[in-house]
Design a protein around this nucleic acid. Sequence first.
DNA 1: TATGTTTTGGAACGTGCAGTCCAGAACGGT
DNA 2: ACCGTTCTGGACTGCACGTTCCAAAACATA
Lengths: 193, 193
Amino acid sequence: MLLFWRKGYEATTMNDLVEELGLGRGSIYAAYGDKHRLFVLALGRYLGHQTTLLDSALGDTGPVLPHLRDVIDRLLAADAACTGAGCFSVNSIAELLPNDAEVAELARRSLQFAEDAFTTQLERAARSGELSPAIGPRDAAHLLVTTVQGLQIMRKADPDPARAAACLDSLFTLLAPTTAPTAPTPAPAYATP
Amino acid sequence: MLLFWRKGYEATTMNDLVEELGLGRGSIYAAYGDKHRLFVLALGRYLGHQTTLLDSALGDTGPVLPHLRDVIDRLLAADAACTGAGCFSVNSIAELLPNDAEVAELARRSLQFAEDAFTTQLERAARSGELSPAIGPRDAAHLLVTTVQGLQIMRKADPDPARAAACLDSLFTLLAPTTAPTAPTPAPAYATP
DNA sequence: TATGTTTTGGAACGTGCAGTCCAGAACGGT
DNA sequence: ACCGTTCTGGACTGCACGTTCCAAAACATA
């Protein structure tokens, strides 16, 4: 499925896929239906993998923001394995929406899941004072998701990982509360009221 | 050129373009060369238009952040004219990079221009105390450009303009310096031992 | 109006596409 | 070992693609 990822839907031919999968055309059609279905399946797998990564990585103890940052770094690194191709999901949204309802539904669900997961984490961050009071958890999560999407675009134009890291640094700095009095936040021992 | 914008490069056929432009095939090839050159020309025009919009809108007096916000709103609105198609530049980056050097060069230049323009503005903002001291003007500009790219992706998945506006609100709130003594901090007091 | 030149746009071309088909290989039950 | 069933994959099909070509229309000059 790397081809769909690297070249997009339209630019990938069935011949390419035959070569990549090592199967005959007939077998591919028998197993997956047509080209579009195969694409949707591939995208679904990719999103499932990303979702799993997110789901398993986000816990409910410890400092939130550094952990969140780490998870996002890992997501970006996973995409970077496919050098220069960016994020399969972002590429698909850009290429096929708003003309492909099936892909739209997949993408929407995945984005919603990410935003919800981030919101849960950031609610915890807000409770423990790790999140700037200037912004609510849900808004912060939405901004975070949006910026990560943007990062995936920017990386295609400039693959230097340092740029992406710097951008995330900036955002996470802004998301943290103004670091005047309680600089290191040693223990997030928060009480349940 | 709306077709390239709406459907992308690969999905747009020469037949489509003949119909859209109202010219014969021969005329198109005589005037513009091949399909790819035509695409590059169209993208160049689009980027030129965006650049002009940016260039003419950014002044050197008055409050920076609200004005910047307004300019970005206008850029988004210009793209929204082509309902649901998002941003031609973002779509092209996602579809054709890293396999198209010509488009890559165009996109890079345009992104660089936007970042530079934002940086100039944010330097002024920093001088007048409008920018949070937590972030430098260049980093803020880079983050801003990145988030706008992300917004263009998010809008394709969820075209509700309110979502994009809320996202920009969040970012600009974070970019502003902490508003005085932060009155409404309902911070659930966590103990620093 | 007559003539040399440019422009137009539809017909035609070769290629490569997505999708189908089927002979034979691989497999499994007995 | 036999044979009914499933699976495999290369040959094939019709079609639509990007591109080229050229007769005729439009224009410019005198």
